[in-house]
Simulated scan of single mutants.
Amino acid sequence: MIPLLHVHHIAIICADYAASKRFYTQVLGLEVIREVYRVERQSYKLDLALRGQYVIELFSFPEPPPRLTQPEATGLRHLAFAVADLDATVAWLDQYQVTSEPIRTDEFTGRRFTFIQDPDGLPVEFYEA
């Protein structure tokens, strides 16, 4: 068995870099580690952290193909964040006009959760810890 330590990062390709950067930094509050423009690829790469831990690599590329289906497409199904207070999280998202699905309860854990979509339609889950 490979002695894995932890998930290093999640890579996301976005269609509108400015909108996605705003969403992940201002709405979700992730911290910018570094931002570079790669001229040869006509692409931005934005490294983001949550409480000092590198978690997301956000890429822009010229004309990336759209996601085919939601959320059952091959590939990343969704990104999930643990939150202490789901009601406060939904209220925060409402301030940014980010619509969340109705809150549901996990039938196995009894924990509450909801989903939103990032600017490219990627499902983002908030799971009450």
Rank of each mutant, 00 (worst) to 15 (best):
A82G: 08
H78A: 03
P3F: 04
F81Q: 12
A11S: 14
C14M: 02
H9I: 05
A49Y: 09
P62H: 06
R104D: 09
V83R: 04
A18L: 08
P66V: 15
D106N: 14
L86I: 14
H6C: 10
T109Y: 00
E101Y: 01
S20D: 06
A19Y: 03
P66G: 13
Q53P: 03
Y54D: 13
G75Y: 01
L76A: 05
F81L: 12
A91D: 09
Q42I: 12
K21Q: 13
S100T: 13
T69E: 14
G29I: 08
T114S: 06
D120H: 04
A82H: 07
Y37A: 04
E35P: 02
L28H: 04
V124D: 05
I12V: 14
Q95M: 06
S43P: 13
V124W: 01
L28C: 06
D16W: 08
R67F: 11
T99D: 03
F23G: 03
T69G: 10
F126E: 11
I12T: 05
Q97M: 10
Q97W: 10
T69N: 12
H78P: 00
L50T: 12
V83S: 09
R41G: 07
Y54F: 15
I33R: 03
E107S: 09
H9R: 09
Q117N: 13
G75P: 00
Q70D: 14
L58E: 10
V90G: 00
G75K: 03
D85P: 02
L4R: 00
V124N: 05
S60P: 15
P119Q: 10
R112P: 08
A18H: 05
R41Q: 15
H6I: 05
D47K: 14
R41T: 07
A18P: 02
S43H: 10
Y96F: 15
Q95Y: 01
P66T: 12
I103Q: 02
W92K: 06
P123Q: 13
T99K: 14
R51G: 13
T74F: 12
H9V: 06
R77A: 09
F59W: 15
T25H: 01
V32D: 00
F113C: 09
P3M: 11
G52S: 11
A19H: 02
A49S: 15
A49E: 13
I103M: 03
L48P: 07
L48Q: 12
Y37D: 01
V83P: 00
D118A: 11
L4Q: 04
T74V: 14
I2Y: 00
Q26P: 02
R22W: 09
P64F: 11
V32P: 01
S20N: 07
R111W: 02
T99C: 06
I103F: 00
P123H: 10
L46C: 13
W92F: 00
W92G: 01
K45A: 14
V98T: 12
T89M: 08
F61W: 12
I12K: 04
I13L: 05
R67E: 09
P102Q: 02
F126Q: 07
H9Y: 02
Y24R: 02
V32C: 02
D120G: 11
G29S: 08
Y44P: 11
A84R: 14
Q53D: 12
P65I: 12
P3R: 02
I13H: 03
Q70A: 15
R51K: 15
E63F: 08
